[in-house]
Every structure is written in C-alpha cells, then in structure tokens.
Design a protein around this nucleic acid. Structure first.
Ligand SMILES: [Mn+2]
Ligand SMILES: [Mn+2]
Ligand SMILES: [Zn+2]
Ligand SMILES: [Zn+2]
Lengths: 145, 145
DNA sequence: TTCTTTATTTGTAATTCTTATAATCTATTC
DNA sequence: GAATAGATTATAAGAATTACAAATAAAGAA
C-alpha cells in the first residue's frame, strides 16, 4: 500500500511553504481514513458538520495543493467527477460497473506493453494507466436473488 | 483495424429506426475520415462551413445514437471533453503528454491480468481499459532543438 | 505576547462540457 | 402528396470545476 501516513503527508507539506489549517488537516485526515477514493463532493459533505462554513472551493484548492506536493493522485474516469487517492505508489483499480466501488489491485507491471508500444509508435513512453471493470461480489449476489 | 466502413455503419443504422439525414451522414463521414479521435467540438467545427445552421446538440445527439448502435466508442479521459472512435474493435491508445495526439496500438490482450484481478478481488471481470502515455516523435524532436 | 507578512479561506461569479426541452422541420411510409 | 414519427435547432438548464477579490488566520520575528 505504501500510502504515506497522515504524519508523513503533513511533514511533506510543512517542508514547503504550505501552512497547516484545520480544514486542510481534516481533508487530509479524511483522505487517509477512507478507502473509497472519494470525490471532492464526498469530502465536502463528510466535513460539513465539523466545518459548517467551509467552502467547496477550499476542498478543490487543497486537493490541488496535495496533488502538486505529490501526496495525492487524481483519478479521472469518464464519469463526471474526479476521485482522489492518497495511496501514491503504483497500483491499479478494479471498478464495479453496478455500484461504482473501486478496489486497489496490485500487479507487477506491464513493462512489456510499454516496450512494445515504444517500438511500434516511436513514442518515448513514460507511464500507463489500467483499469479493470466488472461486477463486485455484493452486486453479483444481488443480481442472482 | 476492423473499423466498420462508412457504408457498413450506414446500413447498421438503417437496420434500426434511425433515419439518414445530411447532418448525420456528415458526422459519420467525418468520424470515418479522421484518424484523430475527435471531440464533439472538433466535429462541430469541421462541419460548420457545410452546415452553418447545425446545432452542437445535433452532434451530441448523433454521437449518442452511434454509441447506442455500437458503431462508435466514447473515450473518456480525465481532460475535459470526450473523444470518439469509429474503430470499435479492441485496441489500446498511446497518448502524447505534450500535444495530446492519440495513436492506436494493438496488443494481444491482458487476459492474465483480468484472471488475477478476478481471483484477488472476487469481482466478475468484464473488461479493462489501458492507455499508454509518453512523448510522440514530433514533440521529442521539438524538445531536443 | 503582539506584530507583520503572506498564505488560506470564503462566497460568489464565471467557465466548460453536456443534456433537456419544446418548437420546427423533414425522411420515410402509405 | 399527406400523415407520422424521428431529427434538428435554439436556448435554457445542469453539473463539475476554476477564477476572483475581500476577509481571515498561520507562522515567524520582535
Ligand atoms: Mn487506489
Ligand atoms: Mn482508436
Ligand atoms: Zn458493486
Ligand atoms: Zn506530441
């Protein structure tokens, strides 16, 4: 998993000109406690009791700050809104077509594909992204009832 | 490439309740003549001399009709707008991080990854998507000058 | 502690892509 | 050449995200 812990994330931020605010810390905290790859709106909603006056712009601003600092990755799927992942080490995602659940998936890498792509297209390949789609166990059960 | 030819696409549409209009035909034509995986707006702009009164809604409507008929695939990357591909057979895309160029790339398939994902996550896997990112030859040349 | 500096938050407006709607038009059928 | 039902058009509405400027507050220095 190698998700930088919350502490680590905080110190990465402190090492630059980034100040620590209660809102910022709460967003970081939520990201690290959540396994669900939340959207900006998920984060906003989850914090609205604790921070009734927080602006949705603050969530977006902070997500960008975190991305720039390299402690969060943005997952841009086709559907409407981006999702955010504080596990920044390489891994893939398995996504349920029914309920949208996103599960981490580790696989050794697809160097061979990159190498072939490089030869065939002449590109200098830097990286790739892979998502695997299907139906999760819960949704499969549901549909069989 | 196995892109259904324009003729084939037209007859697929005729086999359902879809009427052939000049605008619709022009959009199909453009998709089949273009190798660039255009956006809705690319299509709209490319046809505005020929159809000065065409609405952008017509482009979107038709792209949906084509998708539903299975003769066009939508490519949803993170960046703003969708791209459309009339090559509906399985293939991957290599994308330039500098200029955004998209090149088709054929690779035997990643059944092994799907099988492992199935075992590890319990999902019933249906398919996957893979994109490979790098710098195209033109952009590499540019940067070395 | 208090002050100063400057990053951050907030509220709101603006943007962009896409879809909904209703009136008008037109491809197909009879 | 009607009649029917699908298609187009113009425009408004939606959703996600960003821009902006004023108000606020974190961090370090005095
Ligand atoms: Mn993840
Ligand atoms: Mn393609
Ligand atoms: Zn599910
Ligand atoms: Zn390029």
């Amino acid at each position: 998993m190698a998700s930088a812990s919350l502490q680590e994330a905080v110190s990465v931020l402190k090492s630059t000109n980034v100040r620590m605010t209660p809102q910022r810390h709460a967003i970081l905290e939520f990201l690290h406690s959540s396994m669900s790859h939340p959207t900006a709106d998920d984060i906003y909603k989850s914090l609205e009791e604790r921070f009734p006056n927080m602006s949705v712009a603050t969530v977006y601003n902070n997500l960008r700050v975190f991305k720039d600092a390299g402690i969060v990755k943005e997952l841009t799927y086709g559907d409407s809104s981006s999702r955010f992942d504080c596990v920044t080490s390489d891994h893939y995602h398995v996504i349920c077509n029914d309920c949208g659940k996103i599960v981490d998936f580790h696989y050794p890498g697809l160097d061979e594909v990159e190498t072939l792509a490089e030869h065939v297209t002449g590109f200098e390949i830097e990286d790739h992204r892979l998502e695997i789609y299907g139906t999760c166990t819960e949704c499969t059960k549901m549909s069989k009832q």
